[in-house]
Design a protein around this nucleic acid. Sequence first.
DNA 1: CTTGAACCTGACGTCAGCGGTAGGTTTTAG
DNA 2: CTAAAACCTACCGCTGACGTCAGGTTCAAG
Lengths: 115, 115
Amino acid sequence: MRIGEVARRSGVSVRALRYYEEQGLLTPDRGPGGQREYAEGAVDRVRVFQQLYAAGLSSSRIAELIPCIDTDTTTAHQRAMLAAERARVRERIDQLTATLARLDDLIEAADNRRA
Amino acid sequence: MRIGEVARRSGVSVRALRYYEEQGLLTPDRGPGGQREYAEGAVDRVRVFQQLYAAGLSSSRIAELIPCIDTDTTTAHQRAMLAAERARVRERIDQLTATLARLDDLIEAADNRRA
DNA sequence: CTTGAACCTGACGTCAGCGGTAGGTTTTAG
DNA sequence: CTAAAACCTACCGCTGACGTCAGGTTCAAG
């Protein structure tokens, strides 16, 4: 599969895919003409990357997590990182939930003043 | 209250406070020597700003919301914006919750492989 | 009255995750 | 065989929320 198809199927830009490679997240093979050749699983992996990016993880963090995704062994360090990132996401959710409540207050107050 | 104290009490940098002013979020008075003089409520307002920034709102969005915070009337436009931002935060929470589940999967898998 | 902390105004630097462009090569369709 | 679509590398640009000087002013303490 070439880069354009991966882009279409995963919903990210070609540029983004090359960027991911630059960051060490993807290392596709190269065809005889030098073009990138992606394995089937690439599309799913890109989707995972997008999800982790959306969760606020940096490229380097995601790179560190890759062995947890596709190897058979995990080191203590990797497990600790997973736990740490989980905690971060958890905190973020809690914080956003608080913000949501704050916005609800503002909305309620605004509605009252309209009446 | 001068800028340094506001910074300490609100937990942001002096630079950030000047930036907020640049963005129209804060408009402190000026003392005779040209120094910024903040009212008591400034600290709380800065905390609200931080919360909204953390929720992914931009400076200009926050600036638009300010009238909802401290005036007595709100326009339909402002109420619509509040609702839209609320929806955005809600979506973000849902997405993060999905990511959390994903991380939990990874963690469980990692733990199994360790055993 | 001096000195050092805190303040002021520019203005440039940073970082991340790409977007966009230039200039050239490879692949595919007809 | 040709033309266009898709690909390549290399590089500069962008945005947002500040960090970080530089060079000068003001304030509080002794």
